[in-house]
Design a protein around this nucleic acid. Structure first.
Lengths: 243, 243
DNA sequence: TTCAATAGGTGTACGTCGTACACCTGCCTG
DNA sequence: CAGGCAGGTGTACGACGTACACCTATTGAA
């Protein structure tokens, strides 16, 4: 009978349940409204109960990132290093797109968790397997930067803002006025912004293909890296040349 | 006599004073402790007084960024586009290094201010002046990303963390233990991390030359861009090739 | 089977934050 | 001199993260 009661009772919390609930909640309501209190409510538990499974909010966020890292596909076998890296990055990107809050959270991480270190280690391993030198790989990791995690830092990315979504629904007159003002003050921005929006007619919304932009930059880097590799790039030599 | 009193009295606040005080305070104590209340205190004024000059904290941060944008050098004249861009980016970088909090703030901006748009416009103008097509410039702007502002997104950058500074002062035994653990679990990370620290002896601290890494990646991109430009890159053609 | 140790959940409370709102004050203009 | 308005004040509210003391359920050993 005590067993029955125990069975009916809400099953006990554990770290995994907390983290997955947090990820689900963030998926649903975004990262802003995700507070310890709100998460506790979702788990039908008092806020302080969470602290038995997670040291503090920072650690909660770290844990959420770990969950996502677990969703990134392992490296595919049997491709050259460039494609292996490429596919892995694109897999990471898909994860980030399933969890739109993740970018913001990643940006605020300061200390890598073991899971993050593991991912980095495996990531570096792909270059080593391709024969890249330790030296070159080191610089490459810096150059790739956040692209390793499937995103790039784009300041003022309208897709990241809440108002960005509302922007499409704005009256045509306002759009026209905006256009006038832009063309007067920021003609170059306007040209570049409209360059990509041939397919959809909007002027203001970013009509550009994020995926294409991401791959464009990724390939620019990978191709450049390949060139350096083929030329047996060596950074100390490069330093000397530059002076 | 009322004049005398007025003269002795603290001069009235205005937007500029508020923003510059905020920048100075952030320079001094960091962005974390910068609260509306703290800033008000610094200005010997009640917190709500700030709201007569700034709509809310977000707008304060926007304004602080504007101050920094004002510190970036204008484009130099008489150089080819690549060098013009290069020098400008490095100037932006110097600003970001004077204000160590700026990166974190920039990362959280969602809507560009007129000053930011102005900078972007002028930035784009440098590519146009070099003869790059609107199409290529568009993709380039995405590829450059936050490097335009003088920084790159590096996850888990130890220089960004408070503990990073304390890390150098850690006992040798602990360093040794860390080393053991790293080499067991993350051998690749370890190799890459130690690759750059030949000059200074530390194992854990990032012994690498940030400036070099930044320029490495910047030049990788600029060189790649130049190649595309010379080949009259066209993105719709590229799309077709890729399928 | 019993019982103590321990892991997990609760309740209350504190300090900090951003900021709404009503108010006062002193300067500028007519 | 009047009166309006920009700018500074005071109080207050509802979040937030989390410290701390407490209670309770589960578990492992006797």
């Amino acid at each position: 009978m005590t067993q029955q009661i125990a069975a009916e009772r809400r099953e006990r919390l554990n770290r995994k349940r907390v983290l997955h609930a947090a990820v689900a909640l963030a998926d649903e309501v975004g990262i802003g409204p995700l507070s310890m209190r709100r998460l506790a409510q979702e788990l039908a538990v008092v806020p302080m109960a969470l602290y038995k499974h997670v040291a503090n909010k920072e650690e909660l966020l770290d844990g959420m990132v770990d969950v996502l890292i677990g969703e990134i596909a392992p490296p595919v076998a049997g491709a050259d290093w460039k494609n292996t890296v490429r596919l892995r990055v694109l897999s990471a990107r898909r994860v980030l797109q399933r969890h739109r809050w993740a970018r913001r959270v990643l940006e605020t991480r300061t200390n890598p968790t073991p899971a993050a270190l593991g991912y980095m280690d495996s990531f570096i391993g792909m270059f080593f397997a391709g024969g890249l030198s330790v030296d070159l790989t080191h610089h490459v990791m810096h150059a790739i930067g956040s692209r390793m995690w499937g995103f790039t830092q784009e300041l003022f990315d309208s897709t990241a803002t809440a108002e960005g979504e509302a922007l499409a629904a704005v009256e045509p007159e306002v759009q026209a006025a905006t256009y006038q003002e832009m063309s007067a003050n920021y003609p170059n921005v306007l040209q570049v912004a409209t360059a990509a929006s041939h397919d959809d007619g909007s002027v203001v919304g970013n009509g550009c293909d994020d995926q294409f932009e991401f791959e464009f930059a990724l390939d620019l880097l990978l191709d450049g890296i390949e060139q350096l590799h083929l030329r047996d790039y060596n950074s100390t030599a490069a330093r000397l040349e530059r002076g």
